[in-house]
């Protein structure tokens, strides 16, 4: 009932156009997905077949097992994946621990300086890592912290976006419930942990996806601070192939698949959450 379903019978010619439109949409979708299909397909092929002019999705010679075995067990891709995972988790945990309490205080408690703090948060929202990277890099270099997990995570320990987002969310939490809890003798800490936090789970989940995907896919910062193989993230490892590929093309795309797979698979499992989380940057104040 919600959409306007103008009498279909009187618009019969439109359904033909609608069919053509649908076909085009799926054609477009095929274009969007094709690079993935090509990548997975190539990762299962021997080198000479990857650039065969007669591209076929199903490999004529199946070399998938060898390619992936090579990538996962003879090359350090498991370590890269582990590094990415550790860094993303570390960043996310600290972000949540620092942002949630601050957001609650900004949303529900009165204290002097709160508007200055919030103004700073808003201003910081526009500052990307690319601008502050030089001093942070220099500081890490001077303290000898380059090429450590800490260096990889440090600039992201505070997410002003998370503070902003959670503050908006907490503001929507009814004051009457908080007042009722205070009357019932809840302490402020209990109110946060037992009432407000559970209600914020959807926002926290969405932000977690946002943060995880952003840092998994980040190339810029690891490229700056990581120098040794054993600290390399999965995404950074792709830099090894810059301009010239591994001579074994099948293996190259097996590694590309391994790097991309975690986020894509997670997306396919939690589509709604991913779409909400990643486009959440669209939240307006």
């Amino acid at each position: 009932m919600s959409s306007i379903s103008l009498s279909l019978r009187s618009y019969a010619p439109r359904s033909v156009w609608s069919l053509i439109g649908t076909l085009f949409l799926f054609l477009g979708a095929w274009v969007m997905v094709f690079p993935f299909i090509w990548m997975v397909s190539s990762s299962l092929k021997p080198t000479d077949e990857v650039y065969d002019a007669n591209f076929s999705i199903i490999p004529r010679t199946f070399k998938g097992f060898e390619n992936y075995y090579e990538v996962l067990f003879n090359q350090p891709y498991l370590i890269y994946l582990m590094n990415s995972f550790l860094v993303c988790c570390g960043i996310l945990i600290v972000q949540l621990i620092t942002a949630v309490p601050a957001a609650y205080a900004l949303a529900k408690l009165k204290f002097r300086g709160s508007s200055i703090l919030f103004g700073t948060v808003i201003a910081a929202l526009t500052i990307p890592i690319n601008v502050t990277s030089i001093p942070i890099y220099v500081a890490l270099a001077k303290t000898g912290l380059l090429d450590t997990y800490l260096a990889m995570m440090l600039p992201f320990f505070i997410s002003v976006f998370a503070i902003f987002l959670f503050r908006q969310f907490f503001r929507g939490f009814p004051d009457s419930i908080i007042d009722a809890a205070r009357v019932d003798g809840f302490s402020e800490m209990e109110i946060i942990l037992r009432l407000v936090l559970p209600s914020a789970v959807p926002a926290i989940a969405a932000f977690s996806v946002f943060s995880f995907v952003a840092h998994w896919n980040d190339l810029y910062w690891p490229l700056i601070v990581v120098t040794s193989q054993d600290k390399m993230t999965a995404t950074l490892s792709m830099m090894q192939y810059q301009s010239d590929f591994d001579t074994d093309y099948g293996r190259t795309f097996a590694s590309a698949t391994v790097v991309t797979a975690p986020m894509v698979i997670a997306f396919l499992f939690a589509r709604r959450l991913f779409i909400r989380g990643i486009t959440m940057t669209g939240v307006k104040g």
Partner: peptide
């Protein structure tokens, strides 16, 4: 297109979640 909305949304959104650094290699190929 209500009936196809969610499948199309997923297909078109797939590149957004993927690791651009890795997919760039695929595009280069």
């Amino acid at each position: 297109r209500k009936q196809f909305r969610s499948i199309l949304e997923v297909l078109y959104f797939l590149p957004v979640t993927s690791t651009l650094a890795a997919m760039a290699l695929v595009w280069a190929a």
